[in-house]
Amino acid sequence: METLVIILIDGLVYASWLFLIAVGLTLIYGVLRILNLAHGSLYALGAYAAASLVIRYFDRGLWPPGSYFLMLGAAVAVGLLAGPFIERGLLRRIYNRDPVYQLLATYSLFLILEDFIKLVWGVNPYFAYKPAWLLGQVWLGGIPYPAYSVLLIGVALLAGGGLWFFIRRTRTGRLVVAMIYDPEISMALGVNVPRLSLLTFTLGAILAALGGAFTAPTLSVAPGISVEVIVLAFAVVVIGGLGSPEGSAIGALLVGLVRALMVHQRPELELFAIYLVMALVLLIRPQGLFAREEVRRV
């Protein structure tokens, strides 16, 4: 019973993290039809910005809970700066190109950002553990659990909930959905595609940076953290179906739980949990769980 609770919580924590990094990727793909290989770099930028600011914040001895707002602010700032810069500066030039080019272009961007991060923050790791350490532990069903991990679930829920509200309840959000599922009709109806693309990309960037910022206290922020992220995020997105925000939530949950199960039952297979789920899903539904199959008209 206790193991089950732990597996469940572990799974949820991991799923929250996956969701934060995957949902932006899938949203961006859905509207812009570009798979952003530099998505992991946005995550890394968020992590670096948050970590370096949080360390300074605590060095000054300021009010500790303020650090959470600082992390949030760092993520939003990174998204607002990097998002429009990348969308306007690069992606806008390649919208009508072959998908493979777009992939290569964003791969180039990934390479550039990797070194940019090294130039700005150096190559030594940052340890911004204090926001996590501050919260101590909570007792869940008689088991001590790091409270900060539970906070992560909250952050993901808030982000997901906010996103859901935006998509279902606001006019712009509905346009985003329309753009994902019926691009031709949306364009024919005169949707301002450049504006919507800018908005979606920036939103995706903020989400990625948010994922990075709130994970920063739990790891050593060092070069290379962006690499793993893009691979995992893509796997989640594929499981859910490219372009589907709901799909990425389900995909993250599925992978999170399977991984947690493996960590506790078959630890040697933990690393492959995500790929296992992905392979199984693709064998049954080649286009992913929530995406429609496209048939070419002749």
Binding site: Y107, L111, I112, F116, L119
Partner: peptide, 9 residues
């Protein structure tokens, strides 16, 4: 890597 990125771009 940055150099590679710019050339590729």
């Amino acid at each position: 890597q940055m150099l590679l990125g710019f050339i590729m771009l």
